[in-house]
Structure formats: C-alpha cells, structure tokens
C-alpha cells in the first residue's frame, strides 16, 4: 500500500527539483506560453502513440521535441505575431489530440492526462522520469553560465563566443523533455504552473540567479509534499492539489514580502 505513495513522492520531488532551475529560465525569458504550447502538444503525442501502437513515452518525447524545434523557428522570427500563433498551435494541437483519441479502441483515462495522476505512477514511468530529469539536470548545470549569459543579452553572449543558436535549441529541447516526462504527474494543463509558480515564489527572496533556482526547487518540493498530503487526507485530485499548494506558497510569500 505504501509502495505507490513512495513512488509518488519520489516522482514528484524529482520533477520539482528539475522544474526549479528550468522554470527560472522560463520566467526570465518570458517563455511561459512556449511551455504551455509544448505541454498541450504532449496530448497529441499520446493520441498518436495509441493510434499507431507506438511506445507511448517515446512518442510523446518525440512530438514534444518536434514542436520545440518549431517554436525555436518561431522565436527567432520575431516579426510574426508570436503570441497569437502560439495560441493557435497550443489549442489546435490539444484539440487534434482529443479528436484523435476518440478514434482509439482502448479506453483511456483522459482526466489523468489532462490533470495528472501521480498516485498511479508505475515503476516504468518512474524510470523514464528519472532518466529525463537526470539528463535535463546535467545539461542545465553544465551550461549554466552560458545559458545565463544568453538570457541576459544574446548578442553580447554571441560576440563573446557563445553559440547562441545552439543554446536556444538546447533550452527549448530540455523544456520539451521535462514536459514529456512530467505529463503523467501534473497533467498537460498544469505542467507550466509547476515550472513557473515556484520560480516566481523564489524570485521574492533570491538575490542571485543561483539562489532563485535553488529556492524554486525548494518551494516546488514543498508544493509536491503539501499537495500529496492534501490528496492523501482529503482525497483531492493530486495534480491540482500540488498546484494549489504552490500558488498558496506564492501568495503567502508575496504577502510576507509586501509587509516588510
């Protein structure tokens, strides 16, 4: 009985740990809408995986990375009305995913994909999550200064010898990977919030980028712990509970900070 709870705790904390620093970059670079678009397209991956009878996790990762590359193209061509196009891409991929899902013979728990179902995480899914998070963490840490410099001023970074085009693709791809492996935990509709809210909370107290990244991981972990506890005692849906706790943490921090 405690097995599934242990898996849930490990999976949730793993994700929160990685979502912290990655979420900071999403906040710093104003990429929230990109994250949304990526997560919405994840459902398309699920539908395609089911229809074509492919490995579900791999299909989702593949589709997310494909959309990520598309987004990099859109990001570099600033002349287009990016937010409108992102809106179109996000919601149409979600809708296409839902329509395709209606053609599949297998009964799937749609709710689980939209809002997450942390408590039913299997050992296999946990391994995917572990692999994905480890990969993203290694990429983030080994490129930390470069990514930071690129975030502050891309042209300055390029003149100083950084490969800015590579960094842009790299950042979008690791967001895609996290979204793809996290879908089972908080669901496609709530992934972005787990990336952004803890980072916003940490921003209130941080005095350096590193402090903010660490604080985001910490407050993310607290949200996971709190959400799981609420879900355990009051039988609330796990994914939304985690986001609610994260939001409460942010609100309380903002109030405390405002008083000072």
């Amino acid at each position: 009985m405690t097995d599934f709870l242990l898996r849930a705790v490990v999976a949730g904390l793993l994700l929160a740990l990685v979502a912290g620093p990655l979420g900071c970059f999403i906040v710093w670079r104003r990429m929230a809408y990109f994250g949304d678009t990526l997560s919405h397209s994840a459902l398309l991956g699920i539908a395609l995986g089911l229809l074509l009878n492919l490995n579900m996790q791999l299909t989702v990762i593949f589709i997310c990375c494909l959309v990520a590359l598309l987004l990099v193209l859109m990001e570099t061509r600033k002349s287009l009305a990016t937010d409108t196009l992102l809106g179109i891409l996000a919601h149409s991929s979600l809708a296409v995913g839902l329509v395709l899902l209606s053609f599949t013979k297998t009964q799937i728990d749609l709710q689980a994909y939209l809002f997450g179902d942390l408590l039913t995480v299997t050992n296999g899914e946990l391994l995917w999550l572990l692999g994905g998070c480890a990969l993203v963490m290694v990429v983030l840490l080994s490129n930390w200064n470069a990514l930071l410099s690129f975030t502050v001023q891309p042209e300055l970074a390029q003149v100083e010898g950084l490969n800015v085009a590579r960094l842009r693709v790299l950042l979008m791809l690791i967001i895609a990977v996290v979204v793809a492996v996290a879908m089972k935990i908080v669901g496609v509709l709530l992934i972005t919030s787990l990336l952004i809210i803890p980072a916003a909370t940490a921003r209130l107290f941080a005095r350096s980028p590193e402090q903010m990244a660490f604080g985001a991981s910490l407050s993310g972990c607290m949200a996971v712990a709190g959400g799981l506890t609420a879900s355990w005692f009051w039988d609330t849906p796990t994914g939304p509970s985690i986001v609610v706790v994260a939001a409460v943490l942010f609100a309380v921090s903002a109030l405390l900070k405002g008083r000072q």
């Binding site: 200064n145 502050v152 100083e160 921003r203 980028p209 402090q211």
Partner: peptide, 17 residues
Amino acid sequence: VETTLPLSVERFLQLAP
C-alpha cells in the same frame, strides 16, 4: 534585464568568459 532576474553587477561581469 528582466526584473525577474536577480543579478548583481559582479555576477553580471562574471558572465564574461
């Protein structure tokens, strides 16, 4: 620099290769 990015002058200069 985005106001969301807490960056001191020193840390900014440390970003130079």
